[in-house]
Computed example of a mutant assay.
Amino acid sequence: MPVLDRYFLMAAAAAGLTASLGVWQLQRAQTKQTLQASRDAGAGRAALVSLQGAEEHRHAVLRGEWQPAQQLWLGNRPHDRQSGFILVTPLRLQDGRWLWVQRGWHPRSQASFDPPPWPPTPAGQVSVRGRLARQASQVLALGEAAGAGGKGPLRQNLDPAVSPVAGAVMAPWVLWQLDDCAPLRCDWAPVDAGVAKHHGYAAQWFALSALSMGLYVWFRILPRRRQVRS
């Protein structure tokens, strides 16, 4: 019985491992495709008029009163390849709870890094249409700036569970406003489940698998055939 070439065993092991990682990435892509389909179905259903039965990415039209005294700017937020700020304002709902609303984006002035002036905020009862999410827009925050993102009207990130005033009960959602946000922009980028990323990773792993066997053929099989022919 012939002894197996140890280089073949090494190449086969490498090819098998990388191929299995490629299959794993395809499985992750399938899982995220299912999640994306669920999100799209949720967005296509009738908008909620309360937070009862709320789901992430579900559209809702909620009534309440703006609380502009506690609103914040989230800094360093790019949009259409331009740096800017995102305005988040709490909305006191009709059931008494407070909800953070991501109202819109404002470009940064070329002459200053300071946040822009506050835009006008309607008084009294308003209806706000948006998409429910667990968080507002997030950026990487380091050191003491992580978490709530500092103090004052300019923050890096927002912790939606932290009440801006004592005694306020926060709803566990952030409403990303979708219209009637002028002079701000609320044309948010579509939610991306990252399916293409996993397909790309799978292609790389399969390419490495093929490369492992290709190198074995190039350095072990072809030289032997050339010797036989000569």
Rank of each mutant, 00 (worst) to 15 (best):
Q125I: 11
I86F: 07
Q177W: 10
Q70T: 02
P164N: 03
G104D: 08
M170C: 07
R77K: 13
L132N: 04
A148V: 00
Q110G: 15
A146D: 15
L132D: 06
P153A: 08
D114L: 02
D80A: 13
L140D: 03
Q102V: 04
A168T: 12
Q177A: 09
G149D: 11
H79S: 07
Q177H: 06
Q94G: 14
V139Q: 11
I86P: 06
R155W: 15
A146Q: 14
L87M: 05
Q71I: 03
V139P: 05
L178N: 05
W73Y: 12
R129W: 02
G96N: 06
V101C: 11
P117E: 11
D80M: 12
W100I: 00
R103G: 13
A161K: 12
T121C: 11
A168H: 10
Q138N: 09
L140V: 01
C181F: 15
S137T: 09
V162Q: 13
W105G: 00
L93Y: 06
D179R: 05
P160Q: 05
D179P: 10
P116S: 02
W100A: 05
P117I: 00
P78D: 10
A145V: 00
V126D: 14
S127I: 08
V88F: 07
S109N: 11
W173F: 08
L87V: 01
H79L: 07
G96Y: 09
S83T: 01
P160A: 03
Q177S: 07
V174K: 02
A141G: 13
R103A: 13
L178Q: 14
T89N: 05
A123V: 05
L74Y: 12
A145F: 15
A141C: 11
V101N: 09
K151Q: 14
P160E: 06
I86K: 00
Q135G: 01
G147R: 02
Q125P: 13
Q110K: 08
D95G: 12
F85D: 07
L132G: 03
V139L: 10
L72K: 09
R129Y: 04
R92C: 10
D80Y: 14
W100F: 13
P153H: 09
A145S: 12
Q156P: 05
W100E: 04
V139G: 04
L91E: 07
C181T: 02
